[in-house]
Design a binder for these strands. Sequence first.
DNA 1: GCTGTCGATGATAGCGTTACCACAAATTGA
DNA 2: TCAATTTGTGGTAACGCTATCATCGACAGC
Lengths: 344, 344
Amino acid sequence: MDETPGKPRANDPTIEDVAAAAGVSIRTVSRVLNKSPKVNAQTRERIEDAIAQLNFRPSLRARAFAMRRSFLIGLVHNDRNALVLDSIQRGIVARTSARGYELIVHAAPLEAEAAICDVVGFAERSRVDGLVILPPISGVPGLAAALEDAQVPAMALSSVPIEGFAGVILSEERAAGAQVARHLLDLGHRRLAIINGPADTASAMERRAGFLAEAERHGGVSVAEASGDYGFASGVSAADHLLSLGQRPTGIFAANDIMAAGVLKVAASRGIAVPGDLSVVGFDGSLLTKMLTPALTSVLRPFSEMAAAAADQLIARIEGLAAPLPYQATLQIVAAESTGPAPQ
Amino acid sequence: MDETPGKPRANDPTIEDVAAAAGVSIRTVSRVLNKSPKVNAQTRERIEDAIAQLNFRPSLRARAFAMRRSFLIGLVHNDRNALVLDSIQRGIVARTSARGYELIVHAAPLEAEAAICDVVGFAERSRVDGLVILPPISGVPGLAAALEDAQVPAMALSSVPIEGFAGVILSEERAAGAQVARHLLDLGHRRLAIINGPADTASAMERRAGFLAEAERHGGVSVAEASGDYGFASGVSAADHLLSLGQRPTGIFAANDIMAAGVLKVAASRGIAVPGDLSVVGFDGSLLTKMLTPALTSVLRPFSEMAAAAADQLIARIEGLAAPLPYQATLQIVAAESTGPAPQ
DNA sequence: GCTGTCGATGATAGCGTTACCACAAATTGA
DNA sequence: TCAATTTGTGGTAACGCTATCATCGACAGC
């Protein structure tokens, strides 16, 4: 013996067995497998029968090798996406599995420099056919360029255009921010506050802009700002700050549900009733919203659909097909128990 | 042109380029790549230099093809695992990536019959080298046998032995259940309740047994039972039931955090103070615990470590190595704000 | 009827590794 | 000193597909 022997596996039928069974050449079987139109209907049927008979499944390995493609889509995420990871994965798989792709996942570090190395390394190592990258990783400056260099088609599941990424999934972040402001204004709130996401996250800035603009447009409204990093702890400290202000805000918009949960927590510990004394709005419509008490008013982002659209576009690029119509996510504020009329 | 052409990719250096650069045969390069001991130290160094020089990475595709292995580990989950998916993925990747494996994920349906087809289909299609299967899917009767038939090494990330699965990760579920009971008893609670997980989930039944036994041992304690399915809604309805009982329980143990969140919600809507009037304990120590108000007392399950151990064992089986020592998860109840002294 | 075109198929050369077999050189044991 | 190992290396056949080229009938147009 020389090296470690690969453990022998079952002898699956090969394309040759199918060809023999159907009385044709492997070439023709291959054509059937690849849905080539140039196959006689009868022949095709005969081959398909043989395939079913033998329970033949083309070896993904051999196929990947021959086609110089892996049929793997990589998903790059990080722990900020933990709550929505499941729905995003589902969204991608919904579109890719029918076309023979599998989903391979990778958690990347948040730190910019490390992230680039890490993601490119992952792509080269795993030889994925394409990547879907979640924010905030997708916003790392230089990442798009690095991936272009490495010739890896990549798609950012971002709500706003990101420098360098070819096709991104857009949603109306700004409008959504405005929608939140309007919701609070309609309830009579005049002292508002916003807990922003990371300043280098475009979508967070868009939301902020929309929120501020709408408040401004209304007039006679104050808006306090605090910054967060999408983590729970940052939501807590931002809320601590905002709720210690002399003129305490009566309506707080947190840039994601997790930080909003932090606001609820601080409010409870200070005996501030939600929504009696304070209204809280989150963002994402994650599965957290209904589990919190009170249930969180939040802007529902259809992650699953967004991911599906990203997958569609990615596959189109991988296979050199025409890009599907750009997808515009519709963001909808879903009022729950955490918002109510302004006090007094 | 015949069929859809695969999009050409960059011309990565091949093993042949390396061999030429180092002045050896590809065979020897291959040996270096596979860490075969039978290579002269100097030759090895020369080859390693050439590899670094050319920035050569062996093609995972070709390698997978030649070795009849995919270097892919499949993770089978379902939406009941959404909250812990991230940490489980991390745990697996921590152990597998260094050994050249990538993680491929698949969400399976919960319904037993469909699940078997689905999982086996996934394994055959993607040709993973092995599977890690999360509960409750792992508990589907017949699944282990079906995978054995398909010759797919599989590992259940279960807390208790599952019929058919070779090596499972064990944790002290029963002891943990007892621990929860003791925690509540120590706080003076005498009217307890438990919201169980699905009856066919072994771990849930273990927890229940431990909880009941400890309550029994103490004496003078009543335990009401309700059943749940690990979903939020089932937690709500179970809590609705339990909190409507004539002699309302003062301490409720829910078999996972999500259902515990449902209890908190019902308590709030009925004006039952937690922990003043009611203590609530969850299970899993998911990221939900600290986000809830009050923060949830829960039994911390080290999912990441458990997943890592499962991955270790799986790889050992795949590569025919000696199995690592069986891993015993330590379950620790972490007291937070949702439990306190019994009322009166 | 003869050529041109098209539709359907076969033969066969890769794809980039691993691994079996062979073999020379170095080392050991008597 | 010579056979018997051991050690390091090269040649090369798989692995199971895809895809290029060639072939070969059939059918239409002149």
